[in-house]
Structures are given as C-alpha cells and as structure tokens.
Design a protein around this nucleic acid. Sequence first.
DNA 1: AGCACGATTAACT
DNA 2: GTTAATCGTGCTC
Length: 205
Amino acid sequence: MISADRLPRQFFDRPTLTVARQLLGTRLVRLEDGQRLSGIITEAEAYISKADLGCHAHVGRTPRTQVMYGPPGHAYVYFTYGMHWCLNFVTEQEGFPAAVLIRAIYPMEGLETIAARRAPQPPALWTNGPAKITKALNIHRLHNGLDLCDPQSEIFVEIGESIPDECVTNGPRVGLNTVPEPWKSKPWRFLVHDLPLNRTRQASP
DNA sequence: AGCACGATTAACT
DNA sequence: GTTAATCGTGCTC
C-alpha cells in the first residue's frame, strides 16, 4: 500500500465503543513540513457522555470540553499533569460529548524523527503511552479542535489492517484511580496484544 | 486571586 | 512500588 484515504466523518459518527474498537489497526498520520509521521493504532479508550465520571465532559460544557460536544471527527487535545498533551478523536453526534483517547501506536513512518524526539528511550517505549505519542509526533495545544476529515488537516487517520477479536484485549481504563464505580471499572479500554513489536504496560508482580 | 487536582512519564529504591 | 516534575482547569472565596 502506498497511501490510503482518510477515514470519513461517518467512521467517527457511531457509538464510541464501536469507534474505539474499530480504530485498532488503523493508521494515525501526522504531516509535518511535508513529512509523514505515522503509526498503527494499538490501544484506545472510550470516554462517553456527561454521565461518565471518568470523562472530562462530566463537568459539562466548558472551554476545555466544548470540542467534545462538537461534531465527530475532530481532535480533542488536552493538557495534563502540568506537562503532557494527549490526543483524542471526538465521536458521536454533535451535542453528545464523547471521545476516544489514543493510548499507543506502532511506529511506521518518520522513525528517525520519532527516535530523535523520544531519545534515549528504546523503540518499544517510543509511543506506548498517550503523552509519548504526542511528544513523538509533535501534537499539542494548537491541534485542539482540528478537523481530522478536512483534506487539508495535518493530522488524520487512514484505513489499515483489520485486527481480529482474538488479538484484542479489553478491560478497565487506565489512570482513573479516584473515579467512582461503576465508571472506574467499565471495560472501555481496547488494546492489540498481537502486533509484531507489541508493547504493553509493565505487568505488576 | 487562590487552591487542589490530574485520561502521565521517567527515574529511582 | 514509589515519587517528583509542572501548570491548565474548574471551583471557591
């Protein structure tokens, strides 16, 4: 495959759990100065509605969350822990706040650029975390609200390989330590455990 | 104007 | 397993 079309808006205009699962195996592309940086999406989490206490939109419509209330197919990029940016894709119809957090990709293009930004970490640790992806691909504040379906946008998603269910694990979302049940345990995290150089978080002893 | 906290990461014991 | 780094966000005063 040389190149593929961007995923259309209707891909994102579906139930968030469907979008999160279907994003696995697709290719996240970042155009930077004409160069393609990309990777296969291997981990994603769903954040669904104002009722979901793990979702930023649980506080309602604010300057920060308004992108999630907007139309599907846009980037929601938020800042956290005083130093990290994280990339999400807005899902479902306008007015319904929901998004999918991209937690891991398998680097495919622009490896030298990615390596330089992630040095001195080894390749397996380049993009196996949401803030690692944004650092590797130089995604930040200015990309918040960007339309992934606009033919001109510098961030988009391409059709990739189909990932069979046997290769997908799902479980509770990461990092919701102080979020009350049942939201803390909703199995809304999807991850591929079977790509060539799959990276997963360190297992506890 | 001030405060507590976080959809994380990397380095350390 | 533990912890520091670091600041936007939303809430209270």
